[in-house]
Amino acid sequence: MRALVIDDSRAMRRIVSGILEGFGYEVRQAGHGREGLDVLEQGWVPDLACVDWNMPVMDGLQFVSAVRANPAWRQVTIMMVTSESEHTQIVRALAAGAHEYVIKPFTADAIRDKLALLGLLPEGASL
């Protein structure tokens, strides 16, 4: 299973990547939405993209819209991981095509629970 972690904070990228690697994911990182799209355009299409919202160059919502606009990337499950936490923002992200939403701050267990909901928790990683 492949995951792309997009966040402008390198600390946050390492935290999220570390959790996903613990579940057996092969992880790549990007510092903003445009870098994330570059990874996809180079042919590395992940099963899961964990995407921050507020980032320079291209924000997470623009990234979600861009991924959803390309049918070749339909298999990518998108999970927002962001401190944007208003009700309206979550609705916007889901409307744009994100499947799940984790509000910062989060614990590793929160990521695990969401992956379980999405059917993206590899067997044996459930505890």
């Binding site: 904070s9 600390a11 507020n54 980032m55 320079p56 401190s83 944007e84 936490s85 208003e86 309206t88």
Partner: peptide, 23 residues
């Protein structure tokens, strides 16, 4: 910076919106 972002995002959600959070 990330700690400020996390606290700031949650403070923003308590305030009247819509608002934009800076980097």
């Amino acid at each position: 910076g990330e700690l400020a972002n996390v606290i700031g995002g949650n403070v923003k959600a308590v305030l009247p919106g819509p608002s934009v959070l800076g980097l």
